[in-house]
Each structure stands twice: as structure tokens, then as C-alpha cells.
Design a protein around this nucleic acid. Structure first.
Length: 417
RNA sequence: GGGGAGGUUCCCGAGUGGUCAAAGGGGGCAGACUGUAAAUCUGUUGGCUAUGCCUUCGAAGGUUCAAAUCCUUCUCUCCCCA
């Protein structure tokens, strides 16, 4: 007996709030439902913190429903105040267009944009040409300022200051839902919990314009948190982007490999397509065994985003680097960042601090000095503790020198001519 | 438009003429311990051609032997009034 899409979401923990679960269940049992999720094209790459709704989309699409990804080209020119303590930066139309194009590629890894299976639209297409007076008359009339002000998300902003442009965001998002309902028969909107207010507002708008019997539902996902309280998908160096140029597949793999014990099960459900019984099995592992589950999580997730080949490479590299006495010997060379240094410089000899300072492993010579003094610096796996050590041609192996900072960070110095 | 309070190093937050590269906390980095986890403990945390030098306390000027600290102007934020 196949599970319905909604059941899959439920058992995986995707559902936080639903405007009418029973009715939605019934609807989805009986027909192919078109639903949508908004994406903000505020950057050229998504990061994993954005991914929950798209994994949810995947499950529903698999169950036969039709997703629409709405690029918020128009709305991102306004900036959603929900859950934000500060106003968002505004982008130009050109930037947004560029971003939108690369976002589609990334979403394509999770959602099948094949003919008729899914849509991607840009709300700038209908928000852009809007006529202010008409919009106020046709749409604005349905909104109560009193009601809007009572929303929790606005309350918070009222204390800090909320300007008029942001205040309009909800109207525009509601209009999106109405527009998609009219043009594509879209009946459900999904989003993070912070979108609840906006989603409900959209439903109400549809009911007011189309009549009380119009079918519109809303579904929200819980905010995915990490056991250590840090933001999902953020590292000190920035967000965990899906774009391999911005965040290498190896590091991506490592991010997942290093999640907290308490998060493994949850993440397997959210971010992989493994079956529930397999996840249950992985979840039941205890002690150091749990590393197997983390490895699986990292592998599956990397495979989805970067492909099987990259996932295999990352897995192998990780194994090589962390088992049997360490060493990056078997690591995939390309996965390690590198810098070119002319052979003449190597032959002349480079001070250990200079070498580390120019690799990105250390931000400055001072930082490099500390690293060396604290015993975190290794050249070809040999610890160097002398800050005056000079690295010369005798350290070159296979045309490169392998540097290691701490236990996990590697860097290659490629000797160029 | 009027009045008030503020802008300090990655973040929060002390500091109100020299002893300040600036307390404390957070975070980061490194080390120990480990399971590439968590917790804990230790060290470290502006840069450099390095017992000294340079750049930093919203911006620009000024006072002084000496300023994050005093004065002037500008700028931004928040609060109260209109």
C-alpha cells in the first residue's frame, strides 16, 4: 500500500501547521494537487537552510502532485519582514534575474522540472506590471490593517520600526497565491513556520475573491534547528551553499558528517530520500556506532546535491583522512583546496609561517605563528613546531606539498614552474 | 520640526585624559580527552621586516607632551513629543 504524499511528510516530521489537515488529506487522496513554495532569489546559491520545503516538494511530487516553485523576483524587491529583525537589502531586477536562473538548476536536483511535472515562475512577471491604484482597489480592500498588526511577526517589527514598503509584503505574497490559484489551479501553499501569517492571508484573499467554497490550503514546516542551537546550514565561514564553487562537495560532506548525535535521525528524515525503516535502523545505533548513520547521512545528502561521483569521492577522502592513522594520501586531490607556488620560490625555501599564511588556512602570519606554536601545523603529516622552519624542495612530493592545520583542514601547495 | 539616549575590536558589552591593542562573556582557532560527536579542561584570538613599530574605539577636524576618553561639525540608530 503506497503512502500518500501527505503521510510521507507527516512521518518524516515535515508538518508543523496545516490550515485544515483532514480536508487537505481528502483533496490529495482524490486528485493531483498543484501546490507552491516561494524561493527568494536574494543570492545566487541556495544553502541547506533553505532546503526543507524543497525536500517536502520532492515527496509530494513523487506522490503525484504538481509543484510550483515561485521565484520571488517581485517580492524580494520589497523584503519580507516576517521573522527578520532588520530590513532586508534590496536588489536590482538584473541581480534577481541572474540569481533565479542558477536557483532553478539547483532545485532541479531535488525536483523534476520535466514537461508538465513542475513549474517555476517568477512573481515579478505579475507583480511588476501592477498598477498601484488597481491593486489597492482590487486587493488592498480585502486586508484589514488591524488584523495585520495583530500578527506576531509584525508585532515584533513594530517595536523596532517597520516601514511601509515592508508592510506591503503580505499583500503581495497573498496576491501571488491568488494569481497562482487563478492561473494554475494552485490549491496549496507551503513554507516555513515564519510564513504562516502570509500563507493564511493568501488563503483568505482567495476565499474573498473567489468565494468561500474556493479550495485553498496552507501547510508549514517546522524551523529545523540543530541540537547545539546554531543555525541550520551555517558555519563560521558562512552558509553551506549548494554551489560547489562556493562550498566544495568535500566540505559539504563534512558538514553533514559532523552533525550532532541528536540530529542525525531528524536530518535523515528531512534531507535524504531513504526509506523510513532504514532510517529507523540507522537511528537506533548507539555510541560510536552512530558514526555509521552520520556517514550515511553525509553520503546520501552529497549524492543528492552533487551527484554520486562527488559523493563517492568525498566519502573515500574522508575515510582516508580519518581512519588508519590519518593521512590524506588516498584523498581526492581535487577536493583539497590548493595554491600555486613557483618552483623557484620553493627551491629558495619558504618560511613555515609564510607558507601557511598564503594558503587560506591562516588569515595572517600571526595566525600561522600561533598555529605552529600550538602544534597544529603539519607539513606532509609531519608536525612542525619551529616557527622559523623553512620548507624547501625536499618537502615536495609528487609536485606538491600537503599542509594540514589542526585535525581536519588540509591544503595543497602545488609547485608550478 | 523639538527633546533625550547612543554608535568600542568577529558579536555582546566594560572602559570616560596617560598603566589601552582596550576588562568580561560569546564565538573562532589550537591542544588534551574522544566517536571526524557532545560535554569538559588548557592555551590563544588586530597587523608587522617584532623586546620595537603600525593600524583600530561611527566620520572629519581641533585642544593636549599624551585622546576610545575633552571640544566642534557631520553622520547613523533608538526613544519621547509634534
Amino acid at each position: 500500500m503506497a503512502k500518500t504524499g501527505l503521510e510521507v511528510l507527516k512521518e518524516r516530521g515535515f508538518i508543523s501547521q496545516c490550515t485544515d489537515m483532514d480536508a487537505l488529506q481528502k483533496l490529495m487522496d482524490n486528485e493531483r494537487v498543484t501546490f507552491y513554495v516561494g524561493v527568494d532569489p536574494t543570492g545566487k546559491s541556495l544553502h541547506i537552510g533553505h532546503m526543507v520545503p524543497f525536500f517536502a516538494m520532492h515527496h509530494l511530487q513523487k506522490a503525484g502532485h504538481r509543484p510550483i516553485a515561485v521565484v520571488g523576483g517581485g517580492t524580494s524587491m520589497i523584503g519580507d519582514p516576517s521573522g527578520k529583525s532588520d530590513m532586508r537589502k534590496m536588489l536590482t531586477i538584473e541581480q534577481i534575474r541572474e540569481n533565479a536562473a542558477s536557483l532553478k538548476d539547483q532545485l532541479g536536483k531535488i525536483i523534476d522540472f520535466g514537461e508538465g511535472k513542475a513549474l517555476m515562475v517568477n512573481n515579478y512577471d505579475w507583480l511588476g506590471p501592477l498598477n498601484y491604484l488597481e491593486f489597492l482597489r482590487d486587493i488592498g480592500i480585502h486586508f484589514s490593517v488591524n488584523r495585520m498588526l495583530s500578527f506576531e511577526s509584525y508585532k515584533q517589527r513594530l517595536e523596532k520600526g517597520l516601514n511601509f514598503i515592508e508592510f506591503n509584503y503580505q499583500l503581495l505574497q497573498s496576491y501571488d497565491f491568488l494569481k497562482l490559484h487563478q492561473d494554475h489551479g494552485c490549491k496549496m501553499q507551503m513554507g516555513g513556520d515564519d510564513q504562516w501569517g502570509n500563507i493564511v492571508a493568501g488563503m483568505e484573499l482567495i476565499r474573498r475573491v473567489e468565494g468561500a467554497e474556493a479550495e485553498a490550503y496552507g501547510l508549514t514546516f517546522p524551523l529545523v534547528t540543530r541540537a547545539d542551537g546554531k543555525k541550520m546550514g551555517k558555519t563560521e565561514k558562512g552558509a553551506v551553499f549548494l554551489d560547489p564553487e562556493m562550498f566544495s562537495p568535500y566540505e559539504f560532506f563534512q558538514y553533514w558528517r559532523n552533525v550532532a548525535d541528536a540530529d542525525v535521525g531528524k536530518f535523515l528524515k528531512f534531507f535524504t530520500f531513504l526509506e523510513m525503516d532504514e532510517i529507523a535502523e540507522l537511528e537506533s545505533l548507539e555510541g560510536s556506532e552512530i558514526n555509521k548513520a552520520k556517514e550515511r547521512l553525509a553520503y546520501e545528502q552529497t549524492k543528492i546535491i552533487h551527484g554520486k561521483e562527488e559523493a563517492d569521492k568525498a566519502l573515500e577522502a574522508a575515510k582516508a583522512a580519518f581512519t588508519s592513522g590519518g593521512g590524506a594520501g588516498a584523498m581526492d586531490r581535487d577536493a583539497i583546496p590548493s595554491v600555486d607556488v613557483p618552483v623557484t620560490e620553493i627551491e629558495a625555501g619558504i618560511g613555515i609561517m609564510d607558507l601557511f599564511a598564503r594558503t587560506g588556512l591562516c588569515g595572517s602570519r600571526g595566525e600561522a605563528r600561533r598555529l605552529v606554536q600550538q602544534g597544529g601545523a603539519r607539513v606532509n603529516e609531519v608536525q612542525i613546531k619551529d616557527i622559523n622552519a623553512v620548507i624547501g624542495a625536499d618537502s615536495v612530493e609528487d609536485g606538491e606539498i600537503l599542509l594540514k592545520a589542526g585535525k581536519k583542514r588540509y591544503f595543497r601547495v602545488v609547485v608550478g614552474s
